[in-house]
Structures are given as C-alpha cells and as structure tokens.
Design a protein around this nucleic acid. Structure first.
Length: 162
DNA sequence: GCCAACGTTGGC
DNA sequence: GCCAACGTTGGC
C-alpha cells in the first residue's frame, strides 16, 4: 500500500493584465502554461500533484500580491504552447519528441475577500523566510510552507476547507 | 569552464 | 520608465 503523499503548497505568479484571478474564476479551470524557467518547470513536472493548493500571485500590478487560491487538478503534462509558432511562449528548441516545458491544470478555489499585498507580507514577521520576499526572487513557481499558506489565507479573510 | 553581453523579470 | 537581480547564450 502506497503512502498517500502529503499535499503541497505553492505560489504561482501571473500578471493580471494577461491572466488574473478574475479570469480563472470565469474559466473555472485553466492550463498553467508558458512557464519558461527550468527551476519552475522542475517543480511543475516533478513535485506538483493533484490536490496541491496554490496561492495566485498577481505580479507587475498595482498593488502586487496574493489574490486567491487554486487547486492542482491535473497531473503535469507537456506544455503544447512551446510547439506553437504563433504562441507568445513558442520555444524553437522544443520538439514533439522533447517539448521541454511542462504545465499543470489548475482550478479556481477562491478569490480572497481581502487582497493580500506584498507590503502586507513584508510587514509581518511571521512571513520571514518566505521565498517571494527574498531579494531579487523572480521564480514564478515557488513552494510555500503550510504555515505560510494558511497565514496568507487568514489575512485574505478566507478559510480553507479541511 | 569562465565570463561578458544580452534578455527578462518584476518591484518601485 | 528605471534599474537591480537573475538566467541564458556564446566566444574563447
């Protein structure tokens, strides 16, 4: 009998000008495509599993911060946008045999009643050590501890079902 | 393997 | 729009 793997927690960045929490709420489910960084790709491909929860982080917006929560609902698979020459995320090095990049499908869970800004996180010592606060951190797919995940939800005025 | 040049990210 | 930080590329 395989031990059931523990749920993991993540933070996924997107620019709301291109795709934000409202878009996900409208679509209910979306492929999280376009990730073109190897470290982020490895997290998606190797460490994300159905049932994991992720904070939806709005980057390059005013203000930046966490807008809500989504759930991983599909196993990781190759990102087809890498093979599409008309797609903004086309990668000429990707082939059908080796598409290089991966994605997971995510589902809308909640939009926070209160948007949690980056400043909120910076101003709260309980978030010390969180990757998104590290200087120069650009990683668009980050692991988050359960403690930090729950605290962000709390600040957002939303309670995950247990 | 080093490292300069270049491109991108993302907060401000 | 600026620019610091970071990742990738390519010459050597």
């Amino acid at each position: 009998m395989m031990a059931k793997s523990a749920r993991k927690y993540w933070l996924l960045k997107s620019e709301p000008d291109s795709y934000g929490i409202d878009d996900l709420q409208r679509d209910d489910k979306t492929p999280w495509d376009g990730v073109r960084n190897y470290q982020a790709r490895n997290s998606i491909r190797d460490d994300m599993h159905v049932g994991d929860l992720a904070l939806f982080y709005h980057s390059s917006s005013d203000p930046t911060g966490v807008a809500g929560v989504m759930e991983v609902v599909g196993a990781s698979r190759f990102d087809p946008t890498a093979l599409d020459p008309n797609d903004h995320h086309f990668d000429s090095k990707a082939t059908a045999e080796n598409p290089i990049w991966s994605l997971v499908d995510v589902k809308f869970i909640a939009k926070f009643p209160k948007f949690v800004t980056l400043a909120d996180l910076k101003g709260d010592r309980r978030f010390e050590g969180m990757l998104v606060l590290a200087r120069g951190s650009r990683l668009s797919v980050q692991p988050v501890t359960e403690k930090h995940f729950c605290l962000v939800c709390e600040l957002g005025g939303w309670k995950p079902r247990t």
